[in-house]
Design a protein around this nucleic acid. Sequence first.
DNA 1: CTCTACACCTCTTCCGAGAA
DNA 2: TTCTCGGAAGAGGTGTAGAG
Length: 524
Amino acid sequence: MEERMVYMASSKSLLFRSPPIQYESLVGYLIRMAELNRYPHMSWIGNLAGVNLTEETLSKMSTRLDRLATVVGASAEEMKSLCYYVSAKGNNLHVILSMGEIIPKQYLYWPSQRVCFSCLREKGFVSGLWDLKAVTHCPEHGELLREACPACKEPVIFNRGRVAPCLPGCQHNGEGRECSDSVQALMQLISNKFLGTNFDLTEFGFPKQIVDGDLYMLLQTISFLAMRSWRGEGDIDHGWLEARPETMIEKMDHASGALVNWPSGYFKFLDDICAGKGAPNGAIVMHWMFGGFYKSLVAMQKRLQFLFDGLQDYMNDRLKGQLLTDRGSPAILNTRDRRTYMPGFVARKQLGVGRQEFKRLVDRNFLQSKMFHTSYGDIVCVHRDSVREYGQIKERLLGRHELSQELGISLHSLYTLGVGNILNAFHSPEKDGWPQWYYDRQVVDEWLHSLRKLAKPSRVGRETLRLSEAVAAYNKQGASYCRLFHACKEGALSLYYRKKDDENLLSCFHVDRRQVRNWYLSHA
DNA sequence: CTCTACACCTCTTCCGAGAA
DNA sequence: TTCTCGGAAGAGGTGTAGAG
């Protein structure tokens, strides 16, 4: 019995064998084997293995791989490597890709009956990539995938016995390149994600999000951009299903053009759909298509965030000299305000300042401002970067009462530090006409840090004075914090550091009692 | 497609409350 | 007292939905 099984198995294997070629499709491999063994149809190999290879049962093929492997004489591993997608169990609507990703089945022909004739002639194989609907052109030759030979008109059927479907004697060698650079690059990007090829696409400048993202995201992006008749919140996978192959070529051209050289390609794409024709130099006159595009994009925002962000960048770019307001268009900036220039109202809210302070910030150039002519008249808007920068500084601002307490010196001493150019205020009446004094905490910290670096650890037994004591003791000789700090900096006095004292930030700094006395006497 | 009611946006001015 | 903030009100404006 055992021997008979072995005999049966060996009798049902092919005479001529050949290992799979890299990136070959499973069906394509069987076709190639059929041709090698002079079988008129690849389904004959299925018959040998007891597997029904009709179109309807193809999805189950992956479960019969071992039987097919025995017949064609390939290892189970080799056979598995040909399965770029398998149907998910109990889920007829999705397929699992070899990388583990799951995508709707509608993105695939099952299997494809379209081929690149250049590939057939040059490499003698059927690529697994051609099963993807989004692949309209061969990534390598840029040739259109066809359902029939353009020379002998013989149609490509999947259950054929020869890799090339042509009639005997047909010498058609492929058409060569038939698409733009951008379409071919997009095909290569799909190929990299689906087959794992390594086309170098850096020069085409695809957005990072789809280069790094998964295949499904790329397919959805293409599907979305290729629609070109956006009808609100339709299903993105759906809009594409109905696309007829002949319209796909043009759609692909649009989609790939939008994705290469990000974001300028996308901007041109948006120009086409957003700006009405004949608008005065660069001004945006919304085209009717824009509404549908925008609504669909909002519906897809979670998945295709970069397209949404790109749209906002586009608005900013095209409206450089004009102002983009929130008014009447609540949705466009609700999600994420990325206007280059924002109205004063918005900036004030973000900074938490009132009108007077805002006006001062603009007048003193803390906020980069620009006048815009709008329907309300001329209004002042400010650059978002300057708002962000000042917002960060504002968080660090410190009133002078607070600072003098922290440092343990009087308000007047703090003032003299400013006069002596030791510690300058960020805002002050003298410097920029601010009614209050404010110091930048970061500047204060840097100053204290530099003092600490200057100071030496105090040795036990050395008679030292705190700075405040030194100032008090030699006040009549003209002592001031200012002069002490300058002397320390120039090296005339040594500064000591005692960790124990931490009543306030300056109390840990000491000077030598004798040194400071001599120093004052010599200067008196 | 056009018209209209509506929701919503942002400006200015005025005013009261609270902090320095 | 002076300065600042923020709410209310009024004015002017725009996109959208729905009806016709």
